[in-house]
Design a binder for these strands. Structure first.
Length: 499
DNA sequence: AAAAAAC
């Protein structure tokens, strides 16, 4: 059997790999590493979860042992489609490069130029970049690409989706054509093949089988829901609470706004939850992801920025709050669970307007997905509850009224949009006649300009009350935002004070 | 019906 020692990697690399606990390379690693070490171009067709990153990081480390970087003249360049992926590759260089003295610079947007400039000035052996920030540095004259010996283009199909190809072409023109190019893509449709032909010279093509199709290890279920957001949120909460084996979960929404809304709603309902989408500031993105990885957050509400490539081991559940519009995204999303042969569960909320996307998904995965509690036809008509003649005006959960812990008239004006979300969650379940008003509120909330400070930082970065909150009884009802469990006494007296 | 990425 092939081991890492058979691939021609340097001792320094081998020892770091051994320290990380690996001895047997994955197929893409066994296939790509020997050719990469011979300075051949590579066209790798591999999905995430196949060990693709190490298949270029390890040989690059070996090759970089000869020579040193000069100021503003990086020796190698790795292009990634998202900031998180770039950061992840940088972590791989840390891990496997611990016996090396290489300068690695992570050039991504959303963070200050200063540190990045300093690293470029000092001479970077490895640049790991998102295209926009790299070109930004280049245009500011901080960077010469004429010394680049190895270029890695990762996730090429996704780069194409995201419209990065013109940037990539531009960058490639700035690098000597004598370079070595390592090109990776999860899929190889004709337009990607054309790209590969342009960037690569006599490449060695390595294609690995898809990891065991998600259908095998992931239990998939559709869950019928009415289509209003507050109804979907209620269905989701029930679904999450009903899971006995839930360790942690990613909840996908199609839109950034819905990520923010659902995050706030879940947080207010006492869940241990984080959020991740591309309009959040980079610091929050990094913190959220780290906290989720570390187990400090149980749920992560995310846009498709988290659907592919991010290495979050051991996610027990995936919930699709929205049915993805493109069926391939469904496969990527549920691929976040059931990794490495472990079992996983994926639930998708489906409303009447989603039927054609659901059909496309079933066609793509080649099987019918079971419904959890009956399909859309079994969906009861919108419930009317007994105390519907008394629509609630504040954010108190059903059954909470005797607890003396309502939010009173707090923030009636100051946190309007937050209250709208809360109220909708509650009112509509209980009070169908209040629907007209609720709809009006929802519309108002939607028209309200986005409050950036709030959206970008769904919670204060160092707020450790989250950790305590996850141990709360989840049926406790809404938590006043910003206090965690440390609620000032005066707030516990219903309706006592305006804040 | 979207998301992602530069300031």
């Amino acid at each position: 059997m092939t081991t890492f020692a058979d691939l021609g990697l340097s001792q320094k690399v081998l020892s770091a790999v051994a320290d990380a606990g690996y001895s047997i390379p994955t197929p893409i690693q066994a296939g790509a590493i020997p050719f990469a070490l011979e300075r051949r171009d590579i066209c790798g067709i591999a999905q995430t979860g196949t060990g693709k990153t190490a298949s270029f990081v390890l040989p690059m480390l070996s090759l970089l042992e000869k020579g040193r970087a000069r100021a503003r003249m990086p020796r190698t360049l790795i292009l990634e489609p998202t900031r998180e992926l770039a950061a992840q590759v940088a972590e791989n260089f840390e891990k496997y490069g611990k016996n090396h003295r290489l300068n690695v610079a992570l050039l991504i947007g959303g963070v200050s130029f200063e540190d990045q400039d300093r690293k470029l000035e000092r001479g970077a052996d490895v640049l790991i970049c998102t295209p926009g920030r790299l070109l930004d540095h280049f245009e500011r004259g901080k960077l010469l690409m004429s010394g680049v010996e190895i270029l890695v283009i990762d996730e090429a199909d996704r780069m194409l989706d995201m419209g990065f190809i013109p940037d990539i072409e531009r960058i490639a023109k700035l690098i000597p054509f004598t370079r070595q190019t390592l090109f990776f893509s999860a899929t190889m449709p004709p337009e990607i093949q054309k790209l590969a032909d342009r960037f690569l010279q006599n490449p060695e093509r390595i294609e690995v089988a898809k990891p065991a199709s998600a259908a095998k290890t992931v239990t998939q279920r559709f869950v019928a829901s009415h289509s209003k957001d507050y109804e979907k949120r209620a269905v989701l909460r029930e679904l999450v609470r009903a899971q006995t084996e839930l360790k942690n979960a990613i909840i996908f929404c199609n839109r950034k706004k819905d990520v923010a809304d659902l995050f706030r709603s879940l947080e207010r309902h006492g869940f241990s939850v984080g959020a991740l989408h591309g309009d959040m500031d980079q610091r929050s993105r990094t913190t959220m992801l780290q906290n989720f990885r570390d187990g400090n957050l149980q749920l992560l509400v995310a846009s498709d920025v988290a659907a592919r490539g991010l290495d979050i081991p051991d996610v027990s559940h995936v919930f699709n709050f929205d049915v993805p519009i493109h069926s391939e995204d469904y496969v990527h999303r549920i691929g976040r669970t059931g990794r490495a042969g472990r079992s996983g569960a994926a639930f998708t909320l489906v409303t009447k307007r989603d039927t054609k996307f659901v059909d496309a998904i079933e066609k793509l995965i080649g099987e019918k997905v079971e419904w959890l509690n009956g399909d859309l036809n079994a969906l009861p008509a919108v419930e009317e509850s007994k105390d519907s003649e008394r629509p609630r005006r504040n954010g108190r959960e059903r059954g909470e009224k005797d607890r003396g812990r309502g939010r009173g008239n707090r923030s009636a004006a100051s946190h309007k949009s937050d209250n709208d979300i809360q109220d909708n969650d509650v009112q509509v379940i209980e009070a169908a006649p209040a629907r007209a008003e609720v709809l009006k509120n929802e519309r108002k909330a939607e028209q309200k300009p986005q409050n950036n400070a709030r959206n970008n930082r769904p919670y204060p970065a160092n707020d450790d009350s989250r950790d305590r909150r996850r141990h709360r009884d989840h049926d406790d009802g809404p938590t006043p935002v910003g206090f965690g469990d440390d609620i000032p006494a005066f707030m516990l007296i219903a309706g006592s004070a305006k804040i």
